[in-house]
Amino acid sequence: MKVKIHREGTNILIVLLLILSVVNASAWMFIRPAAIPIVFTSVSGVFYLLVVNFFRSPRRHFPGKVTDSLVVSSVDGRVVALEKVYESEVLHRDVIQLSVFMSVVNVHANWFPVNGVVKLVRHHSGRFLSAYLPKASLENERSTILIRASNGSDVLVRQIAGAVARRIVTYAEVGEEASIEDHLGFIKFGSRVDIFLPLDTEILVKIGDKTVGGITEVARLRDPSQSNS
């Protein structure tokens, strides 16, 4: 698994490095005793490494057989919601909501959860509540992506900003092919992603499970040939 720095973090890391270099150089020149700049430089180094870690962007390939029914986690994190809800903004029907929360130490690149075609991309302005809260799905700043999966099912993905995360980046565009090996976007500094699935979907995870974006199989869509609709 190859890892590189995500393009969303390149400029931030360069600017942060310059700022920390200037501040630390000034500390070494003008602050005494020397123990103070030593501590300051150590803290700065740890902080910079944490930011680098946040913007890492691993290359991932699903290790198993990719089928039309496969649903993978869009993000690294922990499952915090798994329930039947009424999705009122796009689908207007009952669905299964599967939500994964990302902490500041997780990779924050977002993967497509299914193979298919992007049918809708919509940005919603909103608040910046803690992304861990259930109501964040409807009240927070967010981007919604509707994908027509390869098996014909509609799968909705929602990127949700949080109390710290104030910038959602969405790469998905209407009409493009979605692949579980590609990034659909990026959320800066901690947040959550919801996946809305048909009610007859087989769920393979439970609350509290850890997921790896693009790798962890979280569900299997029902074969359309078995549907009564």
Score class of each variant (00 low, 15 high):
residue 82 L to V: 00
residue 2 K to P: 05
residue 200 D to E: 15
residue 10 T to S: 13
residue 177 E to T: 04
residue 37 P to A: 07
residue 84 K to E: 15
residue 52 V to I: 09
residue 85 V to T: 11
residue 103 S to N: 07
residue 180 I to P: 11
residue 156 L to G: 01
residue 163 A to D: 03
residue 199 L to S: 08
residue 51 V to Q: 08
residue 5 I to L: 13
residue 160 I to G: 05
residue 193 V to T: 14
residue 81 A to M: 15
residue 129 L to T: 08
residue 201 T to G: 15
residue 149 A to H: 03
residue 10 T to N: 11
residue 170 T to F: 04
residue 137 S to V: 00
residue 153 S to I: 07
residue 61 H to E: 11
residue 218 V to Y: 07
residue 77 G to F: 00
residue 82 L to P: 01
residue 186 F to Q: 09
residue 45 G to S: 11
residue 195 I to T: 14
residue 79 V to G: 10
residue 121 V to D: 07
residue 117 V to E: 12
residue 84 K to V: 05
residue 183 H to T: 01
residue 80 V to H: 01
residue 206 K to M: 10
residue 211 T to G: 13
residue 4 K to V: 13
residue 146 L to P: 04
residue 10 T to H: 13
residue 208 G to P: 11
residue 210 K to F: 03
residue 51 V to E: 12
residue 159 Q to V: 06
residue 67 T to W: 02
residue 79 V to N: 05
residue 42 S to M: 10
residue 43 V to Y: 09
residue 175 G to T: 02
residue 103 S to I: 06
residue 150 S to D: 12
residue 175 G to K: 01
residue 40 F to I: 13
residue 210 K to A: 10
residue 151 N to Q: 05
residue 192 R to H: 04
residue 207 I to M: 12
residue 147 I to A: 10
residue 149 A to W: 03
residue 134 P to A: 07
residue 77 G to V: 03
residue 47 F to R: 05
residue 66 V to F: 00
residue 4 K to R: 11
residue 64 G to E: 09
residue 4 K to H: 04
residue 99 S to D: 09
